[in-house]
Computed example of a mutant assay.
Amino acid sequence: MPTIEYKTDKQKKSFYNSRAWRKLRQQALERDNYECQWCKREGKVTVDSIKEEGKRKEIVLNVDHKYPIEHYPKLALILDNLETLCIYHHNVKEGRTIDKISRNKNKKKRWDDEWW
């Protein structure tokens, strides 16, 4: 049986739009009590937002593959390979955040004169 690949954006989009993924994602959220597991390990609590009628639901949590599907396609639909993370920690894990120090260091001042 050939292995399914998730290398291209089209392949990933197809996977993340599948009924099997949506069902497993929901199971992971329920198992993790709709809480970021990274925050929980740090003694903090980050929970999912509540849908308000007439408004778009704010995305607070992601269900993350501990082992990425593009490298471990056989683990794509394994519940034990999933973990609920808040957007911030998901971005940290994926290397998509800039720490505050480097962000402020590169920030250009508006004025060079002194403030009293």
Rank of each mutant, 00 (worst) to 15 (best):
A76P: 09
E52C: 05
E70Y: 13
E53V: 08
R103P: 00
E70R: 12
K55Y: 15
Y72W: 13
K66W: 01
N104D: 15
E58I: 11
C86I: 03
S102N: 11
V60R: 15
I87W: 06
V92M: 08
N91D: 15
D80I: 00
V60A: 07
E83M: 14
P68V: 07
E70P: 00
E58H: 03
L75A: 05
D80A: 14
N62E: 15
E52L: 14
L61A: 08
K93I: 01
K55C: 10
K51F: 05
I87P: 00
P68Q: 10
E52M: 11
R56H: 10
H90R: 02
S102D: 13
V92S: 01
N81S: 06
Y88E: 13
V92K: 10
I50Y: 13
K74G: 05
V63W: 06
L77F: 04
E53R: 09
G54C: 11
P68G: 10
H90A: 09
H65D: 06
D80R: 08
N91C: 12
Y67L: 13
D64P: 05
K51N: 09
N81D: 06
V63Q: 06
D64G: 02
D99G: 09
G95S: 08
K51M: 07
N81W: 02
Y88D: 12
D64L: 01
P68A: 09
P68W: 08
I78Y: 04
I69W: 06
G95I: 04
D99R: 04
K55F: 15
L79D: 01
H65Q: 08
N104S: 11
K57M: 07
G95D: 10
E94H: 13
E94C: 00
P68H: 09
P73I: 02
A76F: 02
